[in-house]
Design a protein around this nucleic acid. Sequence first.
DNA 1: GCTTGACTTAGAGTGCGCTCTACCACCTAT
DNA 2: ATAGGTGGTAGAGCGCACTCTAAGTCAAGC
Lengths: 139, 139
Amino acid sequence: MKIGILSQKCGLSSHTIRYYEKIGLLPRAGRDAGGRRNYDASILTWLAFLGRLKATGMPIREMLRYADLRQSGPSTQGERRDLLVKHQSAVRRALVDLQNNLTVLENKIATYGNSLSTQMDEDDAQRKPAPLSKQRQPA
Amino acid sequence: MKIGILSQKCGLSSHTIRYYEKIGLLPRAGRDAGGRRNYDASILTWLAFLGRLKATGMPIREMLRYADLRQSGPSTQGERRDLLVKHQSAVRRALVDLQNNLTVLENKIATYGNSLSTQMDEDDAQRKPAPLSKQRQPA
DNA sequence: GCTTGACTTAGAGTGCGCTCTACCACCTAT
DNA sequence: ATAGGTGGTAGAGCGCACTCTAAGTCAAGC
């Protein structure tokens, strides 16, 4: 499979695929006679997995760490598992935070609904302070 | 309240607070005789609200839109509500996606658990393709 | 009255994750 | 044989959201 086809199948641009290879997220692809990358379908599984990590907010640095462990063979399975478990916790915290913030947003919208031409001028007057727990936002 | 105190109270750096004012997220602060910003406690409510929007992934452009509507007085309440409702939907979708992706991650970790020294060499072999629904990731 | 430190401005720099450009090589169809 | 499309590399540029620097002002404490 050439890079253009892979690009269509995985939804990343050829540019991005080459970039991923350059930084080490993808293994160096085999080449044809003319030096063009030639992919095996198996790369799609790996790209899909990377997509999951990305969609759950894992920074590229960390994906790289995982990719490196993977390259190093089966002896690194434990470490890889640890990395995923750690990430899992982070995602769970992010999920809880997002849920809380959504609830606050819903309450806020409800007050808008109630106060169409009521006493509210300052729309930012929160009724319930509601815990703004430690956000997962980068410091 | 001077900017340093506000900074401590809201958890943003003085730099960031000035930056927010510069781009229009915060109203131009009143100044003392020496030209220094002097804040009223009410700004904290607004900053907290901005924090919620940020924590739910709203880009600054959109917060700016909201801030501008707010500046324009109560006649913009409907528009502000619409903006929040739209954002709410986006957050809900993001939440569902995150939940799905977390589930996939959990399954993956489970297979790691099962396959300590089993047939698995390629850790990225997914069992169930599991819908990688349209992600909220910027295209 | 002099130092210290929090403040002011404009604007430069940073880190992330791409995204695009320039320019060249190759391959296929007409 | 040539034109167009696809690919290659190196490296510049971009959008976002800050973050920091430089150079100066001002008020308070010793």
